[in-house]
């Protein structure tokens, strides 16, 4: 019973932590939209704009990846840790 509760709590926590994925999604979408605008305005700078955009997207993704790591920790590491304590 306690095992099941711990597993369930960890799974729910992982799911909640992935709300953090919303932020990078919005941010990256905004960045890509702006990049498209920039390319539309100056098509000759497409290469530079694209590489800068990918760079920015990767950096903006960091928070999402932190939440992903938290989710992974909750799924893969936390249950073993807590169940071992029982």
């Amino acid at each position: 019973m306690e095992r099941a509760i711990i597993m369930a709590a960890c799974a729910i926590g992982a799911g909640i932590s992935m709300f953090g994925g919303i932020g990078p999604g919005i941010g990256e979408g905004y960045a890509v939209g702006k990049a498209c605008e920039a390319i539309g305005r100056q098509p000759e700078t497409k290469g530079d704009v694209t590489s800068t955009m990918l760079m920015g997207c990767a950096v903006a993704e960091t928070t999402g990846l932190y939440s992903l790591i938290i989710a992974m920790l909750l799924i893969f590491v936390a249950p073993g840790l807590f169940i071992g304590r029982l």
Partner: peptide, 13 residues
Amino acid sequence: ISMAIRMFGNIST
């Protein structure tokens, strides 16, 4: 840490 996690997160996902 963020560099390591960025790489790891993307590939391991």
